[in-house]
Design a protein around this nucleic acid. Structure first.
Lengths: 131, 131
DNA sequence: TAGCTGCATCGATAGTTGTCAATATCCCGA
DNA sequence: TCGGGATATTGACAACTATCGATGCAGCTA
């Protein structure tokens, strides 16, 4: 899929070749930019958002009365079973995007706005060509 | 993946079940917050970022000379095989985070800053209880 | 107290993903 | 034209994930 890179056109426009640095694999001049552990931690947060149903859950909670909602409100619109919704909510809580508060029999979930803002900052800051 | 995005078609036209317990389960006003297809599209972008090695690739490309790098530069620091790196890069290109330019034998990848900025905006705007 | 209700946890299973080895393809230099 | 190197593609396999049904637990209510 999408593998057509037009193998003929671009190469013909190439001049003579670079003067000296004809070698491609120059040593990584700067620094590894993003460490392995930091990448794992960041990927874990993205992984929590990498599911359509979890995104909808997050959105529905944010759209609630006081930016909170209980499980029974969320189960039906998604068309998922209650255990599945509970599972997704747990993942979002573990990732720091939601908080859980049990009031009586019901469990109310609310968003953590700083978490999303922090992630957005990391997106544009660390990865957006600004090291 | 095994995600069923709720077979109910238009994502919001739920028949509004009769509220038996007036305490908790009140259907959220009627605004669907995030549609099913929008959630799928957004999740696809997050999924591309939900891997540590892909995040490091993105970061390394962004930290390159002109915010670009070729495959051979990226293979070694990651400790992955060349096909694997190529696979990850393809995923990032398909998600719109990178662009590929073939110069001679080498393939240079560069970041698409608007993609990250756009995603960051969506994060704080659509999900961050701002509506 | 007993029963009921909302939610979490526990296996089990189908589908997806990350990785590698092998191979194909493309391009440059001799 | 041929050989070599850089990259992409294919096939296979292990690991992970999303989902469900069954079950357990806690708190309200009669």
């Amino acid at each position: 899929m999408a593998e057509t890179i037009s193998p003929t056109a671009p190469t013909a426009a190439l001049p003579m070749a670079e003067p000296e640095s004809a070698e491609c694999c120059v040593p990584p001049a700067g620094r590894p930019s993003l460490g392995a552990e930091a990448a794992v931690a960041l990927a874990a947060r993205f992984k929590a958002l990498a599911d359509p149903n979890r995104l909808r859950l997050l959105s529905m909670v944010a759209a609630g009365e006081d930016a909170e909602a209980c499980v029974c409100d969320l189960t039906e619109p998604l068309g998922l079973g209650q255990p599945t919704v509970s599972h997704h909510l747990k993942i979002l809580v573990d990732a720091g995007f939601l908080t859980r508060e049990k009031r009586g029999v019901w469990a109310y979930y609310s968003v953590v706005p700083e978490a999303l803002g922090d992630l957005a900052t990391t997106l544009t800051g660390q990865l957006g060509s600004a090291r």
